[in-house]
Design a protein around this nucleic acid. Structure first.
Lengths: 125, 125
DNA sequence: CATCTATATCGATCAATGTCAATCTATGTG
DNA sequence: CACATAGATTGACATTGATCGATATAGATG
C-alpha cells in the first residue's frame, strides 16, 4: 500500500510534498461480502460449475413429470452410474435437487425455487 | 407418478401380470442441453465458484466509482497480489469484469449486464 | 433365504485449481 | 539512464475434484 514513500532520514523533504501518489482510487466505503457468506454462496456455484451437472439439471427439468431416475440419466451423459450418483449427490447437497426413493428407484426433481434463488444471489452481490 | 402401479383393481394379478420392469420413468422427450453448451455455461459458474472471486465482484460492485484497482483488492481479501491478479484474470476471461489500465494502475469494473446474463442462464436451464 | 436389480459408497488415479515466492513488464520519476 | 512501483506471469506445491472399477446396501422377486 504505502501511501507515502520513505521519508526516513530525508525529513527535510516534507516541504516538498505531495510525493503522494495518494491512492489509486477510493476504496469502497460499504462493507464487502464477508468471507463466510462468500464461502457459502460459492458452494452453490461450485455445484453449478460442472457441465455434466448442468446437463443433469437440464434433463430433470425438461422431463414431463419433473423428475428423473438415475437409470435415465446415465445414458445421455455417457458417464458411469457411480459418477452420475456422485454428481446427483452434490446437487442435492447444494439444495438444488431433492431425492425421493420409491421402490428400487431413486427419483430426482428440482427443489422449487432453488434455481431462482441461486440467480438471486447474483443480483445481490 | 409411477406408470403401472394400480391398474384398476388388482384382479389382473391372477395372471401373474408381467411385473414390468419396463422402465422406471419416462425419459424426457425434449433434447437436453448439449455437451458443448453445458461446457460453455459451466465456465461462467466456475468463475463464480470461488469465495474470493465472489468477494472481488462484491467489492468492485460496491465501489463508489464502480471500479477498483488491484491495490485496493489485495488487502481486504488477505491474499497475495499475484493471487488476486490471477482471480481477476479468471473473472475477466469469464466476461464478468473488464480491465482498464490507466497509468501504473489497472482498474477493474463489472461488465454491464454480465451478472444478469449469468442469472439468466439459470432460468433457461 | 437366495437372488436380482437399482443405486450408493469406497478407493485409487489423474487432471484441475488455489496459493505463494520469485521474476518479469510496463509505467512512471529523478 | 537508474530506480521505484503496480501489476502480470511463471513455477512449484498442496488440495480439490471428476471419473472409474469394485463393492456394499436396499428393495423386489422367487
Amino acid at each position: 500500500m504505502s501511501i507515502y514513500v520513505h521519508n526516513g532520514f530525508m525529513n527535510s523533504l516534507q516541504t516538498l510534498e505531495p510525493v503522494v501518489e495518494a491512492s489509486c482510487c477510493v476504496p469502497s466505503a460499504k462493507p464487502a461480502m464477508s468471507a463466510e457468506v462468500a464461502q457459502q454462496r460459492a458452494l452453490i456455484f461450485k455445484a453449478l460449475a460442472d457441465p455434466n451437472r448442468l446437463r443433469l439439471l437440464s434433463i430433470v427439468k425438461a422431463g414431463e413429470s419433473g423428475e428423473a431416475c438415475v437409470c435415465d440419466l446415465t445414458e445421455p451423459l455417457d458417464l458411469g452410474q457411480p459418477t452420475v450418483s456422485h454428481h446427483l449427490k452434490i446437487l442435492v447437497e447444494a439444495g438444488l435437487l431433492r431425492r425421493e426413493k420409491r421402490g428400487t428407484w431413486a427419483y430426482y426433481s428440482l427443489v422449487p425455487g432453488a434455481l431462482e434463488q441461486a440467480a438471486g444471489l447474483l443480483a445481490t452481490l
